[in-house]
Design a protein around this nucleic acid. Structure first.
Lengths: 159, 159
DNA sequence: TTAAGTGCAAATATTTTGCTGTCAC
DNA sequence: GTGACAGCAAAATATTTGCACTTAA
């Protein structure tokens, strides 16, 4: 069984989710932030700051968006625990990639051959977190799993 | 049960392990590389490039070590799969932290309160990797787990 | 001997900060 | 109206590259 093709970060999010989350925390919603939030929610793959900036500028609801504003908005979302910052095994460079947090936790598999990142949800992952909480007396807020290896097509290509 | 205090990256490595691994792959061993490898093996906690450089220079077996040489040696080790590059949830900055790879795989827990990083080994983690290999037809080379949350002392401090 | 490695300087990539003018509420 | 925000420029941080000299095998 193949994993579910390419990751679709925002597919289960209600429209305007991030914006309403921020608004409910009395965070001011500016035109620029609205654009950046929408870009992150609508992303069909993990985006880094550069990609978010490009898409925000392409969107152009009338407002321009500066690179610094992207970083500051990402910082805001991180502070409120609304996005996860991922490294995806540095398969695509040294920067960070972002995805909205409130989804069910999942792990990322990065193929060292083709660079494709796919996702997987596992009940064992949940159990593992419970075990850690219990045995280590550690209050788990979030968990990231990044797995490196080779996908089926790359293995076949090599053989 | 508390986790095993601070992580001790090199404690189970035979002395000169990295050097012999590289030598067996016909990689040239220079004075500088020997120093850097020893620093990584002997580390009692995760080190970043800066910390490796400092320790290498403090060691001073007669040879000086340049920052660039540290990065190039780390690149070499990564290429040969002999170290893992970690981000430790960016709890201590944007850079990377390194640990020798050949040890049993484990996960990292970072406390969002005090920043301490501890380790944990879990059979569930091994099972999870097996499940992924089976269900996703993915050949797992390595896996990283980073968990954020609050350790017991920080929770008590807050209460 | 000589291909590979080192150090220095400079470049690149990514992210943060200071400051001034602007806008959401 | 005002405190928070945006944009620009510059700084800070982390890492890589070009090139002449040095060294391990």
């Amino acid at each position: 069984m193949q994993p579910s093709s390419e990751f679709v970060p925002g597919k289960k999010l209600p429209a305007g989710y991030l914006e309403s989350q921020l608004a409910s925390r009395s965070v001011r919603i500016t035109r620029q932030r609205r654009i950046v939030l929408k870009v992150i929610e609508d992303a069909e793959r993990h985006l880094n700051a550069e990609a978010i900036l490009e898409r925000a500028r392409a969107m152009q609801d009338g407002a321009s968006v500066d690179r610094v504003t992207v970083y500051r908005t990402l910082g805001l979302l991180k502070k409120h625990g609304l996005v996860d910052e991922l490294d995806l095994l540095h398969l695509r460079g040294e920067g960070h990639y972002y995805e909205p947090r409130p989804r069910r936790q999942h792990l990322h598999m990065g193929c060292l051959g083709c660079g494709q990142v796919t996702e997987f949800e596992s009940p064992l992952f949940e159990k593992m977190k419970e075990q850690i909480a219990r045995e280590c007396d550690f209050d788990v807020s979030f968990a990231r799993v990044e797995i490196g290896g080779y996908c089926a097509s790359c293995r076949k290509g090599k053989a």
